[in-house]
């Protein structure tokens, strides 16, 4: 049984075809990577999977639910979360608040009881704070807990986005270029983090340009080129696929760690 199934997905913007007739399946428990040159349509794919864009054609199924026509918050309710290529953090909030927003779906109190600060709200607040700490700790951000998000260095911000997404306890976590802008040490830490996420039973859908990271961390890889599926397979298969090498600047694929 696949966790995610994509069938015949299409999307174009005006004259630009961003995704065309795309099929793939993601089994649960894997790190599944989507790679491809700039403009290949990876982010567009993520945006469709998460309900931000409506596909022109095709179907997305997540764990037996049809995602077509759902709004992002409805997709999130099914257990999908994501990070963004250009940081979409709540810079007007503290680090802890950011992850606590991530816990939104795990708590239930409404505005009225919140405004009255009823006893059950207080308990829920404490619990949420605890979950927030957990998520931050999981991503190695516990020492930054008291800070404002706007005061964090770039690398920490990238991790904060992951922590926020994890705080919602997703079953599928989509990460759009989590290593972009990170230095080598941070990238190594990220690799370990992705593995830990996967070990925690969360399926990871990863878009990434850093081939070293992709090859080391992925179980399967989907290669996009001009919005279509160019190849799909294990890292070994992809590494030796002539079509892939061709697409990546005539064969100059960097496998450095």
């Amino acid at each position: 049984m696949n966790l995610l199934e994509v069938e015949g997905l299409e999307k174009s913007f005006g004259g630009v075809t961003a995704i065309s007739d795309l099929h793939f399946e993601v089994p649960p428990g894997l790190v599944y990577s989507v790679i491809g040159p700039n403009g290949a349509g990876k982010t567009t794919l993520f945006n469709m999977l998460s309900g931000i864009y409506k596909p022109d054609e095709g179907r997305v199924r997540f764990d037996d639910h049809d995602l077509n026509g759902l709004l992002p918050h409805q997709v999130a309710q099914l257990g999908v979360s994501r990070t963004f290529q250009n940081l979409q953090l709540f810079f007007n909030m503290s680090v802890l608040d950011n992850v606590m927003v991530g816990c939104h779906l795990r708590s239930h109190s409404g505005p009225l009881s919140g405004a009255l600060r009823l006893p059950n709200v207080r308990r829920e607040e404490e619990l949420t704070e605890h979950w927030g700490h957990e998520a931050l700790e999981f991503c190695g951000l516990d020492d930054l807990i008291g800070r404002e998000a706007s005061a964090l260095p770039y690398g920490a911000l990238k991790r904060l986005e992951i922590a926020r997404a994890l705080a919602s306890r997703p079953r599928l976590l989509m990460m759009d270029e989590p290593a972009a802008g990170l230095n080598d040490t941070e990238t190594v830490e990220l690799r370990a983090l992705i593995r830990r996420i996967c070990d925690a039973g969360i399926t990871v859908l990863l878009v990434e340009h850093n081939m070293g990271l992709v090859m080391q961390v992925s179980d399967r890889i989907l290669v996009l080129d001009y919005g279509s599926r160019l190849a799909e397979g294990s890292p070994e298969q992809i590494r030796s696929d002539p079509k892939v090498i061709e697409a990546y600047l005539g064969g100059e694929v960097q496998y450095a760690v």
């Binding site: 992002p72 918050h73 979409q88 953090l89 606590m100 779906l105 109190s109 607040e125 949420t128």
Partner: peptide, 24 residues
Amino acid sequence: NSRSGRALRALHGSEVAAEMMGID
């Protein structure tokens, strides 16, 4: 300082991210 209040502030910070965290 409650769940709903965080939702408010979150949508100010980033509407898509707020949606993605399950906030309508």
